[in-house]
Amino acid sequence: LKKVVALYDYMPMNANDLQLRKGDEYFILEESNLPWWRARDKNGQEGYIPSNYVTEAE
């Protein structure tokens, strides 16, 4: 899975979204639905995130 790091905080707009915290790492599960990607956080929560809020992890 592709790993990304959040560049900004993101508060979910609806139940399908995943909250982002700046500096945290996330795994990308699906990239087909631009600009929204399906992601999983370190706690196993899954949801959609804005792809322009993250960058690929080193």
Rank of each mutant, 00 (worst) to 15 (best):
N43P: 02
P12I: 04
V5Y: 11
K2Q: 05
P35M: 15
N43M: 12
N33V: 10
L29R: 03
P50E: 03
S32P: 08
Y8E: 07
A57T: 12
E58S: 14
L29V: 10
I49C: 03
W36V: 10
A6W: 01
E25A: 09
T55N: 07
G23Y: 05
S51T: 07
N43S: 12
L20W: 01
R40W: 06
E58G: 14
G44S: 04
Y26A: 02
E25V: 15
K2W: 07
V54S: 01
I28N: 00
L20F: 02
N52E: 12
N52P: 05
R38Q: 06
K42R: 11
N16V: 08
L7P: 01
K22R: 11
V4C: 07
I49S: 00
T55F: 10
L18H: 01
Y10A: 03
L20Q: 00
E31Q: 12
R21L: 09
N33Q: 11
N52D: 12
S32T: 12
N16R: 13
N52S: 15
L20G: 01
Y26N: 00
G23P: 00
W36F: 15
E25L: 14
R40P: 01
A15Y: 10
E56H: 11
L29N: 02
E25S: 11
Y48M: 13
I49R: 00
M11K: 12
V4P: 00
N52F: 11
Y8S: 06
I28S: 01
S51A: 14
D24H: 14
A57Q: 11
S51Y: 15
L1D: 05
V54H: 01
A15D: 12
E56D: 13
E56M: 13
D41L: 02
Y53I: 04
N14P: 02
S51I: 08
S51G: 07
Q19A: 14
G23R: 03
E25Q: 10
N33K: 12
L18V: 03
N16P: 04
N33S: 13
K22N: 04
L29Y: 06
D41E: 03
N16W: 14
Y8R: 13
D17T: 09
D17K: 09
L18K: 00
E25G: 05
G44A: 04
L20C: 02
E58N: 13
M11D: 11
V5F: 10
F27D: 07
E46K: 03
L34G: 15
N33F: 09
E46R: 03
G47N: 00
G23H: 05
N14E: 07
A57C: 12
L34D: 15
F27C: 08
Q45V: 13
K22M: 09
A6N: 00
G47K: 01
P35V: 15
P12W: 02
W37F: 09
R38K: 14
L34W: 15
Y26G: 01
L18C: 02
T55K: 13
R40S: 05
D41M: 02
W36I: 10
I49N: 01
D17V: 09
I49W: 01
D17H: 15
L18F: 04
E56G: 10
G47W: 02
Y10P: 00
Y8K: 11
L18M: 07
G23M: 03
N16Q: 13
D41C: 04
K3H: 06
A15I: 12
Y26W: 01
A15N: 11
Q19Y: 08
N43C: 13
P12C: 05
Y53L: 10
T55P: 01
R21P: 00
A6E: 00
E46S: 06
R21C: 11
M11R: 09
Q19V: 08
A57H: 10
Y26D: 00
P12T: 05
S32M: 08
A39T: 02
W37E: 03
N16S: 12
S32F: 09
L18Q: 00
Y8T: 06
D9G: 04
P50T: 03
N52Y: 11
G47S: 01
S51W: 14
E56A: 13
I28R: 02
N52Q: 10
P35T: 15
L20D: 00
Y48I: 07
W37P: 06
L1M: 11
Y48N: 09
R38M: 10
G44L: 04
E25C: 13
W36K: 12
D41H: 03
V5D: 01
L34Y: 15
K42Q: 11
K3F: 06
K3W: 09
I28T: 02
A39Y: 01
D41K: 02
N14S: 13
Y8G: 04
Q19N: 07
E46P: 02
Y26R: 00
L29W: 05
L34E: 15
D17Y: 15
D17Q: 15
Y53Q: 05
D24F: 09
R40M: 13
L18E: 00
P35E: 15
S51K: 13
M13W: 07
Q45D: 10
T55S: 11
E31H: 11
G47V: 01
K3V: 13
L34H: 15
D24E: 15
Y8M: 11
L29C: 05
Q19L: 09
W37R: 05
A57M: 13
A57D: 09
D9L: 02
Q45E: 11
E46L: 05
V54F: 04
D9K: 02
P35A: 15
L29P: 02
K2L: 07
E58V: 15
Q45S: 10
L7W: 03
W36T: 08
M11Q: 12
D24V: 08
E46W: 07
L29M: 08
K22E: 07
R21Q: 09
L1G: 08
K2V: 06
G23C: 07
W36Q: 09
D9W: 03
N16A: 11
E25P: 08
L7M: 09
K22Q: 10
N16K: 10
E56F: 14
L1S: 06
E56S: 13
N52G: 11
A15Q: 12
D41I: 01
G47Q: 00
G23E: 03
G23A: 03
P50R: 07
Y26T: 00
P12K: 06
T55R: 14
K2P: 05
R40D: 01
N43F: 14
R40T: 05
Q45I: 11
P50I: 06
R38L: 15
D41N: 11
K42G: 08
P35K: 15
N16G: 15
A6Q: 00
W36Y: 15
E46G: 02
L29I: 13
E30Y: 09
L7Q: 05
Y53G: 05
T55D: 05
Y48L: 11
T55W: 08
G47T: 01
Q45C: 13
N14C: 15
L7A: 04
W37S: 05
N43I: 07
I49V: 08
G44Q: 05
P50V: 04
L20M: 08
P12R: 05
E25D: 06
Y8F: 13
N14I: 05
D41P: 00
K42Y: 07
E56V: 13
K42P: 05
E30C: 11
D41W: 01
N33R: 10
K3S: 06
N33M: 11
Q19M: 12
M11G: 05
E56W: 15
D17L: 13
S32W: 09
Y8V: 07
Y10G: 01
D17M: 15
L1P: 08
N43W: 14
D41Y: 02
P35L: 15
D17I: 09
D17C: 15
D9T: 05
E56Q: 11
E31F: 12
K22H: 06
A57L: 14
G44D: 05
S51C: 12
P50Q: 06
V4T: 03
L1Y: 12
N33H: 12
L1N: 07
P50W: 09
E31V: 11
N52M: 12
Y48S: 05
R40E: 04
L20E: 00
L34A: 14
N33L: 11
P50N: 12
G23T: 02
L7E: 03
D24L: 08
A15M: 11
Y53S: 06
G44K: 04
W37Q: 06
F27A: 05
L1F: 12
D24M: 10
A39I: 06
Y8N: 06
K42T: 10
Y53T: 03
N33T: 14
L7G: 02
V5E: 04
W36H: 08
P50C: 12
L20N: 00
S32I: 08
L34R: 11
R40I: 10
